[in-house]
Amino acid sequence: MGILEVKDVNKRFGGLQALGNVNLSVADNTVHAIIGPNGAGKSTLLNCLVGKLIPDTGSVMFAGQSVLGRKPFEINQMGISRVFQTPEIFGDLTVMENMMIPCLAKRDGSFRMHAIESVLDEKALREKAESMLEEVKMLDKRNMHAASMSRGDKRRLEMAMCLVQEPRLLLLDEPTAGMARADTNNTIDLLKEIKARGNITMCIIEHDMHVVFSLADRITVLAQGTPLVEDTPENIKGHPKVREAYLGESA
């Protein structure tokens, strides 16, 4: 039994079958990559995991509990954090303020009225936020306006915001898209280190095969909304069906 169990999930958008009978089991403390061509339904699958979409049929269990019917903020509190395909950050706030919000959310839950205390007095949280920024090599940008940063920086900030929550399951939707090569390598190193520390499971959607093969323990290939194969990276590399359906066209 994996920490994440997706069973027979279907999702239609009008006439389009975006997900057809998706079954996915992600083992605890592993990195599971989902690859597939554009429009395969990868992001749609993640949307079904975090409560952005509700599958038409099927079940999604996380750590033995169903996520269906829960609101996104409740699902996050179960321990699922997500990095989006297009960065979702607080553009009007500074980098440091962006980091403070998940820290406060982690400590105080979905709502707490700290109206009189100063946010500057939250020393412990600030230190936590700063050390996370240090890890993604963004500490020097802490007072920057988040909206004014490059796409790659926004992505790294979003990843830091998710990581600082210490989620049980981290969902990454193309985390290195739009990043420079050096930043991509930094990201791989960071994710490796996070993985080595343990107690975290990751689901990563990625087009960059270098990233996938450096990180993944298992890979699922999705095509037209249905899992084609699921196997170890070594086997996937040599799989004829995969070469034909996906690797063949991108490599």
Binding site: V50, K71, P72, F73, N76, Q77, S81, R82, F84, E88, I89, F90, G91, D92, L93, E97, M100, I101, P102, L104, A105, K106, G109, S110, F111, V119, M161, Q165
Partner: peptide, 19 residues
């Protein structure tokens, strides 16, 4: 800060565990 977060990006707020 949370109120400014509401103005800036409610989606991110929800997926950060905030109501």
């Amino acid at each position: 800060l949370m109120l400014r977060a509401v103005k800036s990006n409610q989606q991110r707020m929800n997926y950060t565990g905030l109501n």
